[in-house]
Design a protein around this nucleic acid. Structure first.
Length: 208
DNA sequence: AGTGCGATTGACT
DNA sequence: GTCAATCGCACTA
């Protein structure tokens, strides 16, 4: 079933099973492009299509798991498919998906969504009506979905307030670039995005 | 117990 | 293009 734009109707989106998630941080970061993220918000269902991710694999000095497990980053060490939520620059909430087997430590940062459903609620949460800017950037993404630190550790493959869903329509070509806003291991090509999407963050140079 | 530092954003020149 | 806001927490002592 599709709507007038050729998108599968939102009612056909179902939760991703953990077994469907590829093992390994980099593979998961690529896999998540085009998948959906669904937020069961008190004001209604919010849904977006993931169009940009970054991989922070085990052993990566730029990753929060690099120095071992601590109270803050313990969710990165959960089996793949759990939420790791943290605060950046004291202001912004960022959402990651844990990406390795239990006890290892890696994550995929979700950096941008193409809003699909619940746009009016997202506009309210973000304080803007520019659809392109609702979830373009990791801080904006979490804000648009009403995600805070209480979501840390949540199983995104289970029924609940936040979960990963099957793709909405076909994914265009996937581009690769260096990651944004880091200093260590800055040259590694671990950022993935849907080429041609206007909902992707970053400079034009990073989105060839 | 004090210090330093971000996986960012929006306002402004 | 520049720049400051602001919080949790890891690190040092």
């Amino acid at each position: 079933m599709t709507d007038e734009r050729g998108l599968p109707s939102l009612s056909t989106i179902r939760r991703l099973e953990r077994a469907a998630l590829p093992a390994g941080t980099v593979a998961l970061a690529r896999y998540l492009i085009g998948k959906t993220l669904v937020r069961e918000h008190p004001k209604g269902r919010l849904c977006g299509r993931i169009v940009e991710t970054e991989a922070y694999p085990p052993g990566d000095a730029a990753g929060h798991a690099f120095r071992g497990r601590t109270p803050r980053n313990r969710s990165l060490f959960l089996e793949r498919g759990h939420a790791y939520v943290h605060i950046a620059y004291g202001i912004y909430t960022l959402l990651n998906v844990s990406s390795e087997r239990s006890g290892l430590g890696g994550g995929v940062l979700l950096r941008a969504l193409e809003p699909l459903d619940g746009v009016d609620v997202m506009e309210c949460l973000r304080g803007t009506t520019r659809r392109r800017d609702l979830a373009r950037g990791p801080g904006r993404l979490a804000a648009a979905l009403g995600i805070d630190l209480s979501f840390d550790g949540l199983d995104l493959c289970a029924a609940g307030p936040l979960w990963l869903g099957t793709p909405a329509r076909t994914v265009r070509e996937i581009g690769v670039s260096v990651r944004i806003g880091i200093t260590r291991e800055a040259e590694r090509p671990l950022r993935f995005y849907e080429r041609g999407s206007s909902f992707v963050s970053g400079s034009r140079q990073l989105n060839p």
